[in-house]
Nucleic acid binder design. Structure first.
Lengths: 233, 233
DNA sequence: AAAATTAATATGTACCTACATAAAAATGTC
DNA sequence: GACATTTTTATGTAGGTACATATTAATTTT
């Protein structure tokens, strides 16, 4: 690319996206064949193909062999978000991070937790409650269950020093994750630890991970009032 | 691919991902060069490259020219979610969809709304409140502002028949979107329309869209109690 | 020894070719 | 005309080549 005459696949993607936005290609329309777009823009078909793959992933177009490429009629808002280690999240906001273990017990998995994992039988799990603080104020209260079959090492970890969140992220990669968001009213315990008035609305992130078919951990993270999750469009 | 001997880039991606998961390549490690992986697996370097692009996007590895490819040490949970048209969302749950316009007024944009758009000056906006129902029960209450400069046509639309949500999605593509989630306590109006007890925790989605630099719409969607947003990992 | 220059190297990107595959369109058969 | 078969066509995918580009490593210069 010594001259700026060569189009990269991102250029093609942006051009096609612009045409969709300005209605050159309207919703439901069939786009020209990759080859025709390629020759029009002066690039190779593979370049157009790579651009189209990206637009497909973004939910803007649908492609079918022989059927061609169509602009989606029911566009969805598709956004991605990152949930980093809580410590990192706090530090990135420029706050001081602290962590406090509340409880740590070996328990048989209750039905509600089995349901989250899709388990049929009871399992021995480590039940951990902990509080993350930002600038010495409550930030997130986490209620976590860890399957001791997939993760026996957790029993040896000193959870007063390092949070299960951090240890797991560093030592236990997962192959599948389920994330859900909801809102709950602060009850006695939540209100207490988060120093929030009883009844106040709290943002909840529930995350469950597996390695292959085996459950690793499920955690309910309740954020202090005012928490906002921001996603990138 | 007449024989199953040929590896597609997704195969390579899955293989490399598996190696990261089982610690063949541990966090922080440098991976072999694309070319070496290619010759080891018996495919072309371009195939490995395509796989690596995907793993980079997924947040599993980081690449640098000459520096090589490294397994990320601080993996993040990266998930994607779709926010479809509300009608579609309701119908996909197998429920009957209904919609009800509450109010529709031309107003000068208040400061809070200007802030969402990043606007410095006041603009004429259409302020619309509406209720979406599932099986005749309140589902989502939306409070929306539409910029009449980018979207003057909205003034001609009969919003008693079609929701602004739907009209905009079909007729007003956007180039940028900002999505945030939070939780609020039901106040008088929310509680009323959503038939929820005052004070109950409600899940809130705030979405703002632009076309180029121009604001299109910003909407606060308050969901009835029990609403959950599910993301794909 | 510090600074500047040069070489080496791994990834980034585009091109073209060749063939696979799914699905629509055309054709043939009863 | 209904159904089955064949052909056509647009996308899917891998291979291999050529060169760009960023960064590190090595070398030379001061």
């Amino acid at each position: 690319m010594n001259e700026d005459t060569r189009l990269s696949w991102t250029d093609v993607r942006d051009e096609v996206r612009a045409r969709i936005l300005n209605r050159t290609y309207a919703p439901g329309d069939r786009l020209p064949r990759d080859e025709d777009i390629a020759s029009e823009l002066g690039c190779a078909r593979t370049t157009v193909h790579r651009a189209m793959q990206d637009l497909t992933l973004a939910g803007l177009v649908e492609r079918k062999r022989k059927g061609g490429t169509h602009v989606r009629t029911d566009p969805v808002t598709r956004a991605t978000f990152d949930i980093p280690i809580t410590r990192r999240e706090v530090e990135q906001r420029g706050s001081k991070y602290n962590y406090q273990l509340i409880s740590r017990n070996l328990e048989a998995s209750p039905i509600s937790i089995m349901a989250r994992f899709g388990l049929q039988t009871v399992a021995n799990m480590l039940h951990v409650k902990a509080l993350h603080l930002a600038d010495n104020r409550p930030y997130i209260l986490e209620d976590r269950w860890i399957d001791t079959r997939s993760t026996p090492e957790i029993l040896e970890v000193d959870l007063t020093r390092e949070s299960a969140n951090e240890w797991l992220v560093r030592n236990k990669p997962y192959s599948r994750v389920d994330v859900r968001f909801s809102a709950i009213n602060a009850d006695g315990e939540n209100a207490d630890y988060l120093e929030a008035p009883t009844g106040s609305a709290l943002f909840v992130i529930e995350r469950t991970t597996w390695i292959g078919p085996s459950p690793i951990t499920t955690v309910q993270s309740v954020a202090a009032p005012g928490y906002q999750l921001v996603a990138q469009g």
